[in-house]
Computed example of a mutant assay.
Amino acid sequence: MTLRPLVLALSLLPALAAAGPENSLRPQARQEAAVATAPEDGDPKPEIASVAKGGDAANGEDEATGSEVQSVKVSEVPLPPPVREELDLSEAEQAACLAVLDLMRVTYTVSEPVIPGDDRDCGILRPVTVTEVAPGVALSPPATLRCPAAQALALWVRDFVQPAAARLSERGALTAIRNGSDYVCRRRNNATEGKLSEHAFGNALDVMGFDFSEGPNIPVEPREAQGSMAEAFQDAVRASACMEFTTVLGPGSNAAHDNHLHLDVIRRTRGWRLCEQGPGPEG
């Protein structure tokens, strides 16, 4: 057997190896598209994933060039106006409200705006301080309120409280309404968290009791089935309060209101009112 064909074949191997695909490309890593990361907790200011040209968005640097990452900025969502500003009356509305107080002979002074430095929502921009809610009927102590709350209080006293008090002939005329709380920047039921009370905007008053010229005062307290005129009076003024106020709470509503009537003029959808009369007698 001759060795010539084998030698010839071996001599051709380098040429065959050089005849591979001359234009083939070196494999390259696939470039992933940058995707915005949606916040899981509903934060209104989502963070956006960093984008690096030809590099890794995770490490924040372009591996090939070392260039800085290009980040997308998101503008901050503006805060709503403070609640005290949302509740503020116009000049014309305030003038009309004060005219009603003057017509009913309420004794009051126009106070300086109440704007606490440590809370963005509390306060009253056009407060009035009421000393007499009707002629001869004092607020003890005086109450600082928004004018709509003062107007509701004056109407209630004139149209309902004084006529009911006139039925208590042995006590004489109504002389004072005891004020337990008017404006104060706090949360509902004095809790450490949760929604602000309507007291925080000058929309609420806590009535602790009623004083008379001749007989004993009538404090607000649980009076289920007493069968007394004091109970009848308290029930009458409490029920009628919801004709002027949008919230009326008192004994029986919860333990926090067993010694006073909470009256406020919070705004609700479609004029809905919360008038809790407390539990009635069994049977």
Rank of each mutant, 00 (worst) to 15 (best):
V133L: 09
K53A: 05
E76Q: 14
E76D: 11
A95Q: 12
G123S: 06
P46M: 13
A58T: 05
T131Y: 05
D41M: 11
T65K: 05
E68S: 10
D62P: 04
R105Y: 04
V72H: 13
P135E: 10
G55M: 00
T109P: 01
M104S: 03
G66W: 03
Q28M: 15
P127G: 04
T65P: 04
P81Y: 03
A34R: 12
I115A: 13
L89W: 00
L89V: 03
M104P: 00
E61S: 08
P135C: 06
V100P: 00
V100L: 14
P39T: 15
A95I: 02
P82I: 05
V128G: 05
S67C: 01
L87H: 02
A38T: 05
S90M: 04
V72D: 10
L98K: 05
P113D: 10
D56F: 02
D118V: 06
A96C: 08
I124H: 00
E112L: 15
V130M: 08
S75G: 13
A99K: 10
L125Y: 04
E91L: 04
A29H: 06
V130K: 01
A34W: 03
V130L: 10
S67I: 01
G60Q: 05
E91S: 07
D88F: 02
R120V: 05
V74F: 03
R105D: 13
S111M: 14
A38Y: 07
V133F: 02
V106M: 11
G60I: 01
E112M: 15
S50F: 00
C97L: 14
A96M: 12
A92S: 12
P116H: 04
R120I: 09
P27L: 12
A99W: 02
L87W: 01
S75R: 14
I48N: 07
E63Q: 06
Q28D: 03
P135H: 06
T107R: 15
A29S: 12
K45C: 14
E63M: 03
L101Q: 04
T109V: 15
L79E: 13
S67N: 10
T107W: 08
S90T: 15
A52C: 12
D43C: 15
Q94T: 03
P81W: 05
P27S: 07
E86V: 14
P127A: 06
L98P: 00
A33F: 14
A95L: 01
E47W: 10
E40I: 11
V106N: 11
A58V: 08
N59T: 11
Y108P: 03
L125V: 14
E61D: 01
R105T: 08
D88M: 07
P44E: 13
S71D: 06
E40K: 14
Q70K: 15
N59F: 10
M104Y: 13
P113H: 11
V51M: 02
L101A: 00
R105H: 11
T129G: 01
G117N: 03
D118Y: 07
Q31C: 01
R120H: 11
L79Y: 07
V83I: 11
R120F: 07
